[in-house]
Write a protein that binds this DNA or RNA. Sequence first.
DNA 1: GGCATAACCAACCGCAGTGGTAGGATATGG
DNA 2: CCATATCCTACCACTGCGGTTGGTTATGCC
Lengths: 172, 172
Amino acid sequence: MIFSSKAEYGVRLMIELGRQSPEHPTSLKAIADAEGLPLAYLEQVVARLRKAGLVMSARGAHGGYWLARPAEDIAMHEVVQALEGAIAPMECFVHDHTQRVLCSHEPDAGRGCATKLLWTRVQAGIVRSLQTTTLAELVEFSHRTDRVPDTPAGAQAPVVSATAVGAQAPAA
Amino acid sequence: MIFSSKAEYGVRLMIELGRQSPEHPTSLKAIADAEGLPLAYLEQVVARLRKAGLVMSARGAHGGYWLARPAEDIAMHEVVQALEGAIAPMECFVHDHTQRVLCSHEPDAGRGCATKLLWTRVQAGIVRSLQTTTLAELVEFSHRTDRVPDTPAGAQAPVVSATAVGAQAPAA
DNA sequence: GGCATAACCAACCGCAGTGGTAGGATATGG
DNA sequence: CCATATCCTACCACTGCGGTTGGTTATGCC
């Protein structure tokens, strides 16, 4: 598995916050009940999102969390990176401060390892897919799926499903 | 980290086999010495490649391993899948026999989880990058890097590096 | 003020997988 | 017969993951 459940829970949490209006904060307990997730564990997850500046919080009674920015301006790359750390396909991939991706073994500049070429392509594929998906898309998708329980299979999901789910599941 | 060292070692092993002519088999010990990897662990790695039909073997003295097919016909997706198992971004992704990708939780067909949309895109990005890279490309890349130790930085790596390394490191 | 609510924080813990080792059995060429 | 080398099974230390426990602090409401 590529991502841990921290990413799964955190993304669901962000979607849940995106479904709420940012006027009144949403408590973690409400999200935990809605998604069936352990509250104490969600605290650790949301702490990462808060430290990354993706959500804001208010303490005390009627406190809770809300999105720091509109969902349209949040790329899922930021969310996943906050939850999982740097997206690196392999141990030897380290990021320096210039955002370049290096390979730590074979420190001599002569013979660079050829695997780097492969892992770099994989990483680029992941990052591209995460950067071109916004939180707003997922929120809209969740609205659509819980609004239409029976699937007309033709009139529904015109843009999102055609480029995403359809790419992997040709005949759903 | 997305892939374990099994993938790293296995890919290096495949590249090493691609550099040799398939006439005489290459022993694991020679590969272990060339790459600085533990021999006993390489045995477990190569066993997966053999069971996947990617390499063939001969026992006894002067035995060893060679590619079952020319490197041009081996997509890295097969190699990585043999080494790491099914490429799934998240625990809940299970493949049935029709190659479709499903989500195991929320078994009621009504409210499908919106995270599925994201993970499906990520998986598609990974699979695409792995399927469009052949072993022959990596072998050629390794030939180029150990032949040209000093990098002219402009005349070199015209096609491969432009689409792969250049996508992640804009100003290398 | 007091109490319920709810964010925040820091340990702790069982479990599974990773990375590797140990020791052998089997096959083959010289 | 022996060196080489594949093949196979079991074992093991360590790490990270998923989750729990038990608090402390801050805030709204009666």
